[in-house]
Design a protein around this nucleic acid. Sequence first.
DNA 1: TTAGATGCAAAGTCTTTGCAATTTG
DNA 2: CAAATTGCAAAGACTTTGCATCTAA
Lengths: 168, 168
Amino acid sequence: MAGCRPVRLERNDTDMTASETMREMLSAMARKGWRITEQRRTLARIFAEHEGYLSPKEVYDQMNARHPGVSLDTVYRNLRELSDMGVLEQFVMMDGGLKFRANCHVRHHHHLICLSCEKTLPLEYCPMEDRVDLPGNYKILHHRFEVYGICEDCQTNGASSAERTPET
Amino acid sequence: MAGCRPVRLERNDTDMTASETMREMLSAMARKGWRITEQRRTLARIFAEHEGYLSPKEVYDQMNARHPGVSLDTVYRNLRELSDMGVLEQFVMMDGGLKFRANCHVRHHHHLICLSCEKTLPLEYCPMEDRVDLPGNYKILHHRFEVYGICEDCQTNGASSAERTPET
DNA sequence: TTAGATGCAAAGTCTTTGCAATTTG
DNA sequence: CAAATTGCAAAGACTTTGCATCTAA
């Protein structure tokens, strides 16, 4: 998907188009034996076309715009199930809010996240690869690395609307 | 505080004792013009004596044990205000749950967190120091780096009680 | 046809707020 | 004493659940 290209690669080196992404999402659902309902098709389209994270509410709003009448709980159900099966990445923002995005599973990476518009840019670098000096007696299971900032567009447009200081 | 020593230093190289930590917390409150109530004294003691994170509910339980009759909303109020003023570090766990700990403000660092008992070990390493190749057009504001695992004690004791897979 | 998906309404969890009563300095 | 702090109860935000109805395969 568009938001998934590694930093400093040209735009279309490894990109999937939105429709490729959408096809992938739908076939993942099908592989799981899911029925492809109108809503799920719409859901897939929304994430395929959006680079970055969306909150349940934002997804709900976009669903309603394109496919009026959906209910918020169905959106929640589908988001949860899709992230359980790895099609979406779930994410807890620093203020505790939930977010989802189409999963960039090309390779392990981290994100640079715009605090204003919440678009994300992948970072190829992973601090776990060799730098960290970890105690040997821990069984290491996960890690988390994110960088937060304001992207160029948002700096220019003074679009500080959604900008907020993370609470952590 | 005890949990604040950097990895691989001997236990008492840079430690503050619990009572030193407590004194610091109380004087920070006083500097802010706060009244030192029994509850706040108890709160300070709890965090001074605990290495690692505590949820609001855990704090509430410990408060009740030592000083019966506190109300949960007062605990929330004090936790929020203390972390606003930097005496406590607030933290959103990967499942969205809030946690607090006495602030190790000795120097910038990150944490290795046990998923079972939630004790934390500070990591001196910071990925932002030189390694990451960030785009120049972002205004970088924050970052977050945590490593999750199971500590030796919890591996030994099979104390997998609280162990859960983070949802992110 | 029928198992799976949805909408509705209700319940749950966690956190915050308003206000009167209490306590600290 | 005066102002800050607390407890209580209620409201809020967000998410999940139960169940009858509907629908994709």
